Simulated scan of single mutants.
Amino acid sequence: MQLLGRLEIKSEEKIAQFLNEEHVGRIASLDQDGFPQIIPMNFAFVNGVIYMHSHTRGEKLDNIKANPKVGFEVDKELEFLPSYFSSPTDASQADTLYISVVIKGDGIIINDKEEKTLALNALMEKYQPEGKYERLAPEMHVVDEVAIIKVIPKTMRGKYKIGQHMDKATRMQIAKKILEKNSPTARQTIQTMGFDIIENDVKMVRDPTW
């Protein structure tokens, strides 16, 4: 199997889980001169589509109205692997463990108040799960004060590199070095790679196959 195939996320559930957990995505649209404009946005993934809220005026809205073809991307760096993990002198051995999802699709500005309300409530549920706010209803003025961008995917592909491209011995060795380096994300990365940490040592639990 080629490396690209090994890096592709096969599970739709894993893609949805990743999109539901991450807080920043980037929407790409084409401006009037044909240049891509890329904007970081908060977003919610609901019923297989992406929703974002925006000011009612702006370049990205003009771009989408003129050309609905958009891109949307979400990524997460899990861990930078220094070159010395693999070689004492070869800097090209540095690598990064990551997860990403790339969407190509149609962007739509939503006018229907029921759908706008669904999107806004989904955004609040995601970003403020502790509650302490009043759920929105279609008749509320705030629904008219924001724009909602909807991205309907034509294609959605996920990629991940969490050690599945390595043999088990190498993956174990890398996990132990990550634990020893003890970055702020080390323990979470090790668990994502399919290991548990028991008595400050790494134990394999599962193969990281998505």
Rank of each mutant, 00 (worst) to 15 (best):
I162C: 12
P36H: 10
K159S: 05
L3G: 07
P40I: 07
H53N: 06
M204Q: 14
L3I: 11
Q191K: 15
I198T: 06
Q173N: 13
E73I: 01
M172P: 10
M156T: 00
A16R: 13
A66P: 00
A147Y: 08
E8S: 10
L3A: 12
E8K: 15
W210E: 06
E21F: 13
I15E: 04
V70Q: 00
F35Y: 13
T192P: 08
G105L: 00
I197V: 06
P40G: 07
A175F: 13
F85A: 05
M193K: 04
G71R: 07
Q17I: 08
A28Y: 05
G163V: 09
V101M: 06
K132L: 14
V202H: 10
I152A: 05
F85V: 06
S83Y: 15
A66N: 02
T192L: 13
E139R: 12
Y127R: 03
Q93W: 12
M172D: 07
H55W: 11
W210K: 15
I38R: 00
K181A: 11
M193Q: 02
L97D: 01
N121E: 10
T155A: 01
M1I: 13
M193G: 06
D75F: 04
F85I: 06
R187D: 14
D95Y: 12
K14E: 00
H55P: 14
R157N: 13
K113W: 08
G194F: 04
F80R: 11
V146N: 10
E115Q: 14
I103M: 04
M124S: 13
D106E: 12
F45I: 01
I152H: 03
I108T: 08
Q93V: 10
F45P: 01
N200K: 07
L120T: 05
T155Q: 10
S11W: 08
I152Q: 09
L120F: 04
K116I: 09
D207I: 11
I149D: 01
P36N: 07
G5C: 06
L4I: 14
R157I: 07
D90N: 15
L120A: 05
N42P: 11
G158H: 02
D201C: 09
N121L: 05
H53L: 08
G34W: 01
I39H: 12
H141N: 14
P82G: 02
R187N: 15
I103N: 00
G105H: 00
N121I: 05
V24Q: 07
L19T: 02
T96M: 13
E145L: 15
G34H: 00
N63T: 01
L4G: 12
P36R: 09
E180Q: 14
Q2K: 15
I110P: 03
D196E: 15
K159H: 10
P184S: 04
L97N: 05
H53W: 08
E73M: 06
N121W: 03
N47M: 02
P36I: 02
L61V: 07
K161D: 02
M166V: 08
K161C: 03
E13G: 11
R26I: 02
Q164C: 02
F85G: 02
V24F: 06
F80Q: 13
A66E: 00
I27Q: 01
